[in-house]
């Protein structure tokens, strides 16, 4: 069951830097009905002269709590993300519409169908919500994450993903990074863009019948969808979410 979407007043309760260009923002929403992992909100900002701008942002958290966590990357030419990353302060209020979306969502799965997560850059936000929901439920569904990101400094949710990688238990998520510009010392492969060959090596094969989630910029998602199809994944076993710069 998906909660009915509506506009809510949200108050910023905490912020902290996520990467040099991104910020985590916690919003308190007293009448929030809760949300599923992978859902998003529309954030609406209104200026004193009445001018409004709204944009969609994925929610990094899930569950019944009356608060949500966002992680927003600054798009220099955008008009909403620079405000959210650079100007928004604790105590400020804005409007959010949600919870939104029912396609790009994951629920703890009694059938344990394997899941392959593929994230490009800040497209990791809804994917991180899925990783967190999997951990919170102590679900043993096999989850594997491929995270394509420019440099180690650009990794979102670093400590949580490191904890998954270090956990030998059955509820841990297997994490593979593909660094396009700079890889850390000791990385299993040098920096370089994601290729079809690498994708074939690092994602669950179609024979395991995985449900695949892909989130990233439109060009990233479309490249990955094309390769997944060539690797034999069925179109309807792949759930994609594209985002633009705003």
């Amino acid at each position: 069951m998906i909660a009915h979407a509506a506009w809510h007043v949200a108050t910023v309760s905490a912020t902290h830097p996520e990467t040099p260009s991104a910020r985590r923002i916690v919003l308190d929403i007293p009448d929030w009905p809760g949300n599923l992992a992978g859902q998003h909100v529309d954030v609406r900002l209104t200026a004193e002269d009445g001018y409004q701008a709204s944009r969609s942002y994925s929610i990094a958290s899930s569950g019944d709590a009356p608060s949500i966590e966002l992680a927003v990357d600054r798009v220099a030419s955008g008009e909403v993300s620079p405000y959210l990353v650079d100007d928004l302060m604790v105590g400020d209020q804005l409007e959010v519409r949600g919870p939104l979306g029912g396609w790009f969502v994951w629920r703890p799965d009694p059938a344990h169908r394997p899941v392959q997560l593929i994230a490009g850059g800040s497209g990791v936000v809804p994917i991180a919500a899925i990783v967190r929901a999997h951990r919170a439920a102590l679900d043993v569904t096999p989850l594997r994450l491929l995270y394509a990101v420019r440099t180690p400094d650009d990794v979102f949710f670093r400590s949580e993903l490191d904890r998954e990688a270090a956990d030998p238990g059955p509820t841990a998520v297997h994490v593979d990074y593909v660094f396009s510009r700079r890889a850390p010392d000791g990385a299993p492969r040098p920096a370089g863009r994601l290729t079809r060959e690498l994708l074939g090596e690092l994602v669950l094969p179609p024979q395991q019948n995985p449900l695949v989630f892909v989130c990233g910029s439109t060009p990233f998602v479309e490249r990955v969808l094309g390769w997944l199809k060539e690797l034999g994944h069925e179109v309807d076993d792949v759930r994609a979410e594209r985002f633009g710069g705003a």
Binding site: H40, V41, S56, L100, W103, F104, V221, E241, F243
Partner: peptide, 8 residues
């Protein structure tokens, strides 16, 4: 983009 953005 894709249809997810139409949810709102």
């Amino acid at each position: 983009l894709d249809g997810n953005v139409l949810a709102g």
